[in-house]
Amino acid sequence: MKTRDRLELIEKECKIRNNLKQIQFTHYFSNQFMERYTQFFCIEEFLEAAGVTNQASLDSLPMENWERQVQLATTFSSWQEMLDKAGEEYLMENYY
């Protein structure tokens, strides 16, 4: 990939990440993404398996428990890696 193309890709991904709050979580982690990389059909099932049923339970979940859930139930070694891949795929599916 040419440097210019790579820079454009990075710029678009940064724009998406800056506007992440505007992207529905279920769109960012599509069912196709979840089926491909996790043991779950959808992000809601993944959250439920981690014990997340509402914003309060998400906020109180220790990060080490969240990381463990990612490691046990996905092909990723960390939450950051999962976020990065979801961002890449969202970018490719929606902006190219």
Results as ranks from 00 to 15, higher is better:
1 M>W: 07
1 M>V: 09
2 K>D: 12
3 T>L: 13
7 L>D: 09
7 L>F: 09
7 L>E: 14
8 E>W: 05
9 L>P: 00
9 L>N: 12
10 I>H: 05
11 E>P: 00
13 E>Y: 00
13 E>V: 00
14 C>F: 13
14 C>Q: 14
15 K>R: 11
15 K>I: 09
15 K>E: 14
16 I>A: 12
17 R>Q: 10
19 N>Y: 12
20 L>A: 15
21 K>A: 14
23 I>R: 13
25 F>L: 15
26 T>V: 06
26 T>A: 05
27 H>D: 15
29 F>Q: 11
30 S>A: 06
32 Q>E: 13
34 M>N: 07
35 E>P: 00
36 R>G: 00
36 R>T: 09
37 Y>Q: 10
37 Y>K: 07
38 T>K: 07
38 T>S: 15
39 Q>F: 05
40 F>V: 06
41 F>Q: 12
42 C>Q: 08
42 C>I: 06
43 I>V: 15
43 I>C: 07
44 E>I: 08
46 F>V: 02
47 L>N: 05
47 L>Q: 08
49 A>M: 02
49 A>L: 01
49 A>F: 02
49 A>H: 06
50 A>W: 01
50 A>R: 01
50 A>M: 02
50 A>F: 01
50 A>I: 00
52 V>M: 12
52 V>A: 10
52 V>P: 12
53 T>Q: 15
53 T>I: 15
54 N>L: 05
57 S>I: 03
57 S>Q: 06
58 L>K: 15
59 D>T: 05
59 D>R: 08
62 P>G: 03
62 P>E: 05
62 P>C: 02
63 M>H: 07
63 M>E: 15
64 E>W: 02
64 E>G: 00
65 N>W: 04
66 W>T: 04
67 E>D: 03
68 R>V: 01
68 R>I: 01
68 R>H: 04
69 Q>K: 12
71 Q>A: 10
73 A>L: 03
74 T>L: 02
74 T>I: 03
74 T>K: 02
75 T>L: 04
75 T>K: 10
76 F>K: 00
76 F>D: 01
77 S>N: 12
77 S>L: 08
79 W>R: 10
80 Q>F: 01
81 E>H: 11
82 M>W: 07
82 M>A: 12
84 D>K: 01
84 D>P: 00
85 K>A: 13
87 G>V: 07
87 G>K: 04
88 E>M: 13
89 E>H: 03
89 E>S: 02
89 E>P: 05
90 Y>V: 11
90 Y>L: 11
90 Y>R: 12
91 L>E: 06
91 L>Q: 07
91 L>P: 00
91 L>A: 08
93 E>S: 13
93 E>Q: 13
93 E>Y: 11
94 N>M: 08
94 N>E: 06
96 Y>Q: 12
